[in-house]
Design a protein around this nucleic acid. Sequence first.
DNA 1: CGCGCTCCCTGGCCGC
DNA 2: TGCGGCCAGGGAGCGC
Length: 273
Amino acid sequence: MPELPEVETVKRAISPALAGQCIKSVRLTRSDLRWPLPDGMAAHLTGQRCGEPRRRAKYIMVPLEDNTTLLVHLGMSGAIRLYDNKPEFGTHDHFSLEMETGSWMVFSDPRRFGHLDIIPAGGEAEHPLLSHLGIEPLSNHLSGPWLSDVLRGKKTPIKSALLDQRLIAGLGNIYVNEALHMSGISPRRLAQTIAGKRAEKLVIAIRTVLAAAIEAGGTSLRDHVQPGGEIGYFVQRLSVYGRTSEPCLTCATPIKELRQSGRASFYCPSCQR
DNA sequence: CGCGCTCCCTGGCCGC
DNA sequence: TGCGGCCAGGGAGCGC
């Protein structure tokens, strides 16, 4: 499901249920997610008070009162739901927290590409899943000059470079396609040719598309919903993603599709160069 | 070193 | 309606 806007939306949604509240019980029905969950995770969490959840790239981090951190990654198919009372659990509800308020937070993930972990106190910078992450695209670090600098000499297509979490962390397949369309850049263009005005334009497009998606509550594809059951409305504003053969909203040229590094790319052959 | 491919897993959809 | 093949919003690990 989730790229940065969806994860940000989930984080905001679960924040009121978790922040300042104690975990009353933990329901853990399988430990074989992307990697085996750490031993004793349920016991570690039980009874602890949660702090304010934070987001880093596509990860959610919940600080705990013993200064360790609960790390949550939703993978491709992960979702979090909130309930006021104990719910009926489904097959893929692998991990749930019962809060002292009586509400439940349920982590569900059919494909099990998601992951949960406990980060030791002070260990976030060294965590193997976090240490290599690049800059946050909504931070001040992202600028035209910075982007042209990190892309200098890169012969990979710009599409692949934008998906590389070691450079910019949080973009995924939907928003990379959308940002490239918004900035008039072909997904095939070599990364090293993005500089100057073109880099500025791409940076603005990345920020604009992410901010708009967050504001819309993310993009709901297929049956995915946000924690409270709401859908994300950004799906109605996608310009190219999933619109193969449909007219470009700018120039009416049919949208084309290709595969790059095993992932679908969607682009307007007329607007994007 | 840096790149692209494969794989992890389940479920939904499409075509026959 | 049943079934095989293909596809999916991520990303680590490996081979070239």
